[in-house]
């Protein structure tokens, strides 16, 4: 990921910054210009909780080149208490144990690296809730 793009996404990736629509109250992650529910354009900044529940998941055995060292790894759609849904890896456990309904905590981790000389891209991953 090129450096400017990674930099632009820091608030959402590092701090889970989201937007709450002033019109309908929907929490949109990451922030957008228009609300996907009511098309409102007035938002207030809100932070997602660093926890959630698995909606659905898989274990990626055949990974893209950049992620091959980590395979097999679990990826899940996680819903936070605010109702936002995000896709994330679930780590620090047996990937096969990740199933819908599982409670997770979100933690700050290295997500990908741009080769040996490029930038390091950080963000969130899920781990089993304590």
């Amino acid at each position: 990921m090129p450096s400017p793009r990674n930099w632009r996404e820091i608030p959402a990736r590092y701090r889970l910054e989201a937007a709450r629509c002033r019109g309908c109250g929907k929490v949109v992650y990451p922030a957008r210009r228009a609300c996907p529910a009511c098309r409102g354009q007035e938002f207030e900044k809100t932070m997602l909780s660093w926890k959630g529940k698995v909606v659905t998941s898989t274990v990626v055995q055949v990974a893209p080149t950049e992620f091959q060292m980590e395979a097999p790894y679990a990826v899940a759609i996680v819903e936070t208490p605010e109702g936002a849904r995000l896709m994330t890896q679930v780590v620090d456990c047996d990937p096969g144990a990740v199933q819908p309904g599982m409670e997770v905590a979100l933690v700050f981790r290295l997500i990908r690296r741009e080769g040996h000389g490029g930038i390091l891209c950080y963000g969130f991953k899920a781990v089993p809730a304590a």
Binding site: E70, D92, V107, F108, R109, L110, I111, L120, Y122
Partner: peptide
């Protein structure tokens, strides 16, 4: 882990 380094460890401890 492959996704842990001095920065992620520092963030976890700092939090």
């Amino acid at each position: 882990g492959l996704d842990e380094d001095t920065i992620t460890i520092s963030v976890a401890a700092g939090r």
